[in-house]
Amino acid sequence: MSDQTAIPLEDTRKAQRISPTVVTVATIYGIVALMIVASRLVSPSFGGLSQLETILYLSSFLVFCAFGQGLVILVRGLDLSIASVITVGGVLSAALMDGSNAGLFYVIPAILLACALIGVVNGIGVTVFNVPPFIMTMAVGIIVYSLCLGFTGGTPRGFPAPVLNDFMGSRFIGIPAPVWLLIAFAAMGTLVQSFSPFGRKLTAVGNNPEAAYVAGLPSRRLTVSVYAISAACAGFTGILLASYANGATLRMGDDYLLPSIAAVVVGGSSILGGKGTFLGTVGGAMLLTTLATILSALGIGQGWKTIMEGAVILLALILLRDTVFDSLRAVLVRKD
């Protein structure tokens, strides 16, 4: 039948030559690149590859846990338990490995599994009992932290396996091993979030939970698995952090809670779910870390540094606004 005549005008006019996702991700990396170049003004040793290497190295921890956070946010959730779960990962790896390489191959999976189970509890609370994610994960975080406190009696004991500590300090082809890990993780995470049926299903659940249910998606199971993944990622971060610092502390996860959310949101994801890319999150994490390295090198008081940190986050958010994209796109489209 002659479909052409029946097509309403708006369909064709809304054709978008440039995907908003691509614009978002490009903008973030553009800002990061700009900051790195501009940082040469701050210190002559900045602006080079070694700075990039440091940034990648230091942002890797944030990237690992932000992946899980990003998936949770994708399905309209929020995971406030990751700080505690990072601690669990760190404490368990120090306690169970106890400075020996033996048994590494079952200890690591065991820790990840234990953390994933915490995530499952989160997920069940959120899906089956309909507790708001904010409350559920915060409460579980408090509970888990308190258990950690009791378990360690306040002092985490032991050391992670030396081989892990060596790994964190080693280089392959001149690049630190954790940076390779970051690259592999970013590639895998992108595949999972943006190029797998699983990622598509999560986006669907986050975009429209009712529709996802009606479409026959196992929304609950998906949501639970997302919280499990988030917790496992946090546990993984904890293992690496403990390996990096060669020991665990109980507050080792605190520094990652709000930044993990910030990285996801600055990375262009919607806190309301259903929209976001992992590459954007990686960019968001890099942006935050780059900012931190620059601020650290600036000879100004902590107050001003803190203000600048907040201001840059705000600025990035404003730059990444949809309306900014829309006008940008409008200009581009009008040109041709």
Partner: peptide
């Protein structure tokens, strides 16, 4: 409210049926 995923493409919306019901290839 109960049907479409407005952030996703028409193709993804349609193929979602596949994702929901059977195991598909690893990547799309």
């Amino acid at each position: 409210a109960d049907g479409i995923f407005d952030n996703l493409t028409a193709a993804t919306n349609i193929v979602m049926a596949d994702f929901a019901s059977r195991s598909t290839g690893a990547f799309v």
